[in-house]
Design a protein around this nucleic acid. Structure first.
Lengths: 156, 156
DNA sequence: CTCCTTGCAAACCGTTTGCAATCGA
DNA sequence: TCGATTGCAAACGGTTTGCAAGGAG
């Protein structure tokens, strides 16, 4: 079940130029890394994959590229889990949310109408609050871990 | 609109003993701080308020107390905003979510059936995923900031 | 009396930044 | 050409941890 990309045909250079940004090796490598997977990656793991294409690209440039893509709205950062690490993914056109297994750590994407419904719900009810972004993360046990684990503590 | 506490009558000592934990000054102070407000506090601000009651209590002990209360399920940690700072609050019986204003930073709690609905939605649809915790954070513009700010960038 | 908890200070770790060199347009 | 971008290394900031002293049960 591979996650289709934003605009599969569009290259990194296209994306950058569309936003009036310079096309550099670091940015291209970061974009290709993120666009080429359906996983959520930490900056570190993006850097690791980028290093395979071009070992001369520095971690700092990866961070700067990620920040750039986020600013222009092509990439999203989420804070899954209780750790303070950020996870990155290309910004999908469809709203979606995350199911995180507290046992095996697997992160599942789920698209559908739920996030839209939440937006609508707020539009009507919250006197004047203008929702822009909904971040919904559900923690629990994935099908694989339900039977295996007791109902208790994960890491002890 | 003050947020009513979990079990208003229960003292810090009660809570701790109920979980078989030792009653110490640091823990009592941290509990009273968190139970005495409807705000979300960072560890640092908890420490600041704790210091008023007892200046001898160390930041590290505040962190350890927060971790303890979280482990026993009496306190919750959320990652609001894009920074990696954690925000703490007592664990409310009613599910709720957060409305964060991207302009002024205000965090609003909202209780209601939304979170419950999400849980139910998942129970039925997600073949076997067992939801345990729903973290829903909506970023946008609060009523006060809607008119004031253009539709663009917050901090530039 | 025993083990748990604390204060302190140093370590951690993901992320950011200043700077001179380099690169893209 | 010339400002934007990079690599490098050092700084940052919230959080964690090792250890000896102090405190709860």
């Amino acid at each position: 079940m591979v996650y289709p990309h934003n605009v599969p045909e569009e290259t990194a250079a296209d994306v950058l130029r569309r936003h009036g940004q310079r096309v550099t090796d670091a940015r291209v490598a970061v974009w290709e890394t993120l666009a080429g997977t359906d996983e959520h990656l930490t900056a570190e793991s993006v850097a690791k994959r980028v290093a395979v294409m071009d070992p001369s690209i520095n971690l700092a440039s990866v961070y700067r590229s990620l920040a750039l893509f986020e600013e222009i709205g092509e990439v999203r950062q989420s804070h899954l889990g209780p750790d303070r690490t950020a996870y990155w993914e290309v910004g999908h056109p469809d709203e979606h949310f995350h199911l995180v297994c507290r046992n095996c750590g697997t992160v599942d994407h789920h698209r559908g109408t739920l996030v839209r419904q939440i937006m609508d719900h707020l539009q009507g009810k919250e006197h004047g609050f203008v929702p822009e972004r909904v971040e919904l993360t559900v923690t629990g046990l994935c099908p694989n871990c339900v039977g295996v684990t007791g109902s208790d503590h994960p890491h002890h």
